[in-house]
Amino acid sequence: MDLIANFEHQHFAHCESGVMATLLKYHGLPLSEPMVFGLSGALCFAYLPFLKMGNMPVISYRMFPGYIVKNLPRRLGVKYFRRTYKNPDLAMAQLDEFVAAGQLVGLQTSVYYSPYFPPEMRFQFNAHNIIIVGKEADEYLVSDPVFDHLEKIKSADLKKARFARGFSAPKGLVHYPLVCPDSLDLEKLIRKSIKKTVRMMLYAPLPWIGIKGINHLARKVVKISGEHNDRYTRHFLGNIVRMQEEIGTGGGGFRFMYAAFLQEAYGIIKLPVLKEASDRMTAAGDAWRMFALECVRVVKKGCASEDLGHIARSLKRCGENEKQIYRMLKAVK
């Protein structure tokens, strides 16, 4: 059995930031998951009515999948190895070489081909992230950050999972840090990343992104029952909640994780505004959870038109909460 030495599995809230935190820590750059998430500037809100998945518009509470793996290394000044493959056999052979050499690598996989997931969650989602930590006969040992212990996957399944087709196809992506800097100027990185997140959430010049996106969605919610049947309305609201709570978030649509980042940032920079913003971000996360409960009530009990008005108002409130936080964070320069 090949098992990478000194590897300790950690359970994280989100696959991509979890994989990144694990890989960086293993290469001598210990950053917490919220720090990885925050420094990447991965917090977002996007409502993309023209992009449908399962007949529902895409709603996301963070940047698109793959953003952290692509952007964080550059920001941190980490030399990073990324490779995609055309030939699945070559990809698997190289993976075996990595494992044999004791190299910890991250892979992008499809949930549909990962049998260790609960069957109800095996949708066509191609941008899941895992780490391979060993091989035992025909099975790979997988450190999947959103599971609480090491999992196993058969080599044939893994091959399919790495070469699933469709939206955001992984194309066998393998990645790992090559050289990490000895130290990081965390203060500068934090300031830069907060600035970027604030700019995007407040001033993205598109109606679907940031606070504008939240309000856009709220306006849509009011109109929805007039345009579609009850079943569609239920699914539409359910979809908002699923994207917020279930799809690799760890609850509150990533707001709690960002609050944890702001708290950690306050510990490093000691700017009072960061502490205040962290507390408010926690409250914003709670507001998102209350909003989710309101949607779920409609999904369970059926929809009356006044409910939708109420839900839209809650959603606008979520947007307003966050707007105030980002305005406050403009003080961080």
Binding site: V241, G251, F256
Partner: peptide
């Protein structure tokens, strides 16, 4: 802030089952 394990939230279960 700290990490906490959870056995799930009924709200997410309802929308998934739906």
């Amino acid at each position: 802030y700290t990490r906490v394990s959870t056995s799930g939230w009924d709200a997410e279960e309802v929308v998934l089952r739906d």
